[in-house]
């Protein structure tokens, strides 16, 4: 493990797993090479199934001697007892306290890491998911701070020091949240004359942008940033406009009708919006009726399309409010 200490990204992943796994499971991770930890994006734990490590372009399974294989049939199966311990570490032995989060299918843990859960859904009388029982899968997404990742976008997203309202579009796992986080930092710190510092409010429904957890904010979001953590997006945006007078509001993964209403409300109040949404292209995003409303109202004046062609946060295109290409 000594070599691991020399690398922040690898160290980060290893210490996270040490925190979550019982010693007997963690021992298996000790021989995983530094290069894998540097690139690791997800670790998946499934009851009675192999442990899977996913990097940006490969998948590995763990053998019982700690070596990696791409053949899952030779991998070690995660025993129920060890899975239960990992689940209790994730929930701090308090499944009851994360029910609100479970309703959305994931739990945010210290450090802003997101743990997706799968099991048997329990529905309430309205047919909505109330919680999960018999949880059998945990998908740990390792959150990483990548300072400077937004720098390449500054010429296209800022004009005379002022930011454009910007929507980041991509399929899952292309780095939307990472880029959004860095944009928040860029605007909050500012860099005159290119970027005028601005008051930013982050509506962090999943506590992933800020890594807000148990009274701590894990990521540096700059000196002019306020965070409404675990707050529903639409409600949070309205609250922020009323009480925090932001120049920019930021939120992740918009999609619902009331998100659209809140964004239009913010834009009409003269507040800039940075947001992200799942879509493979601008056209694909516009095809959703509620999103078309945002487009036709020109709520966003820049659209950034991301992919993972050259790794997470690869910028494929930047569009203006009419959908025309903006030189990168």
């Amino acid at each position: 493990m000594a070599t691991h200490a020399t690398n922040d990204a690898a160290d980060h992943a290893v210490s996270l797993l040490q925190r979550l796994c019982p010693p007997s499971t963690f021992r298996l991770f000790e021989d995983v090479p530094l290069s894998v930890w540097k690139e690791a994006e997800e670790v998946r734990f499934r009851r009675d199934q192999p442990i899977q490590i996913l990097t940006s372009n490969r998948e590995y399974f763990l053998r019982s001697d700690g070596s990696l294989t791409s053949d899952w049939t030779t991998a070690m199966l995660l025993p129920q007892e060890q899975f239960a311990r990992i689940l209790q570490a994730v929930t701090q032995s308090s499944l009851y306290a994360v029910e609100e989060e479970l309703r959305r299918g994931f739990i945010t843990i210290s450090g802003g890491h997101r743990v997706g859960v799968a099991g048997r859904a329990i529905l309430n009388e309205n047919g909505q998911v109330q919680t999960f029982r018999s949880i059998r899968s945990l998908a740990l997404r390792i959150a990483r701070e990548r300072r400077g990742v937004a720098n390449k976008l500054i010429p296209s997203l800022f004009q005379r020091g002022q930011a454009h309202s910007t929507l980041l579009l991509s399929p899952p796992q292309c780095g939307k949240t990472t880029l959004l986080r860095d944009l928040v930092r860029v605007c909050s710190y500012g860099a005159r004359p290119t970027i005028t510092p601005a008051k930013v409010t982050v509506i962090d429904e999943r506590s992933e942008l800020s890594g807000h957890w148990d009274d701590e904010v894990m990521f540096d979001l700059g000196p002019r940033t306020d965070v409404l953590a675990a707050c529903p997006k639409a409600e949070g945006m309205m609250m922020a406009i009323r009480s925090l007078s932001p120049e920019i509001v930021v939120t992740d993964e918009i999609g619902r009708e009331n998100d659209v209403d809140a964004i239009l409300e913010a834009v009409n109040a003269g507040v800039l919006v940075f947001a992200s949404a799942h879509a493979g292209s601008l056209e694909e995003w516009r095809r959703r009726p509620s999103m078309q409303r945002l487009f036709s109202n020109r709520a966003f004046t820049r659209y950034v399309l991301l992919s993972r062609r050259l790794g997470p946060c690869t910028v494929e295109a930047v569009y203006d409010e009419t959908g025309q290409n903006v030189p990168k």
């Binding site: 689940l87 308090s94 499944l95 009851y96 109330q130 919680t131």
Partner: peptide, 10 residues
């Protein structure tokens, strides 16, 4: 049961 149960069960 406290570590593994939801509120209603608990």
């Amino acid at each position: 049961v406290v570590g593994t149960s939801d509120r209603s069960h608990l």
